[in-house]
Simulated scan of single mutants.
Amino acid sequence: MGVAIRRAGEGDRADVVRLLDAAFQDDPVSGWVFPDREYRRERHGALMAAFLDIALSEGYVDITEDGAAVALWWSVPAGAHEEGEDGPARLRDAVDPRNTRIEVIGRLTGDAHPSDRAHQYLHMIGVSPERQGEGLGSALINDVLDRCDREGLHAYLEASNSRSRALYTRLGFAFTGSAIDLPDGPQLWPMWREPQSPDSGRDSRRFA
């Protein structure tokens, strides 16, 4: 049975923020941005809300019909990261002005982001903790990758652990060769995907 997917809108905002907050509370990157667990519980949701607002205004958000999984995508044009806008500083000011790590990770990922070709950017994909392992995340990402293959679109993401890196590799993503090292923190792997032909044998096994 397939997973029903729809495009999320402003009316889904509160539910999606709660989902992302729960899904990423124990993520290594979230733990680096908010090292203190109690403070993370207090401020992490605000960062998720800011990411969602950017996706709603500049990209698109796909959600499973049952609301258990969500993916934040941006359609990034060529040259988008050469505009010089100080987004990381604005994000820090809006979410937690005292937390320099919000700005640091924004600058590091922005510097690593490809700017020479248009692409679909998978910024975040989250699944409710109690629903992980059911293939919901796989259904969300494959829905967009199928469109990428049909329309000849490139895709990009940053894998946050070795397990997700291996699984994204099976979906046709390749490590760009330069990891993002968060100061005294975890490593991120930028990954790029070329559009694939229907007979390329892409592995679509479940991963979230």
Rank of each mutant, 00 (worst) to 15 (best):
V61Y: 09
I63M: 14
S200K: 05
V95Q: 04
E151G: 02
A23V: 05
R117H: 05
L19Y: 02
L140S: 10
E58P: 12
A159V: 08
A80T: 01
R131Q: 12
G9P: 06
E158F: 00
G67H: 10
R206N: 11
L182P: 05
D86K: 04
E130A: 12
C148L: 09
G126N: 03
G152M: 00
R18S: 09
H123V: 10
E58D: 15
V144E: 13
E85H: 12
I54C: 12
H123P: 01
N99G: 06
V29G: 09
A23R: 01
D93Q: 10
A80C: 13
A159R: 03
A50T: 07
D15P: 03
R147N: 07
V127R: 07
G177H: 03
R13P: 07
A159P: 06
D15V: 05
L91A: 08
H113P: 00
A159H: 09
V17D: 09
F175L: 14
A68R: 11
E194S: 07
R206P: 11
V95I: 00
D203Q: 09
R101V: 00
L136G: 06
E65R: 10
F173I: 01
G137D: 08
A4W: 04
A80I: 09
S178V: 13
Q25K: 05
Y121D: 09
P88D: 09
I141W: 07
G84D: 01
I102W: 01
V144Q: 15
D111Y: 03
T169M: 01
R206I: 14
Q187T: 13
E151I: 02
A14W: 03
D111S: 13
A78P: 01
G133Q: 02
M124F: 15
R18E: 14
T100F: 11
D184M: 02
A139Y: 11
C148P: 05
W74E: 14
G9H: 06
A174C: 08
G137T: 03
G201D: 06
H44Q: 13
Q25R: 15
D116F: 00
T176I: 10
T176P: 08
R98W: 08
A4K: 14
A71P: 04
P195M: 04
D26T: 08
L91G: 03
A208Q: 10
L188E: 02
I180R: 08
D111E: 15
A22T: 10
I54M: 13
G152A: 11
L91F: 01
A208N: 13
I180N: 05
E85W: 13
D26R: 12
R43T: 08
G133K: 07
H113K: 02
L140M: 04
A14V: 08
R98M: 04
A166D: 12
R117A: 09
M124N: 15
G126K: 04
P77L: 02
A14T: 12
G2L: 14
R202T: 07
D26W: 11
P129E: 12
H113W: 06
L108Y: 00
G137I: 02
L19G: 05
L145Y: 03
E158S: 05
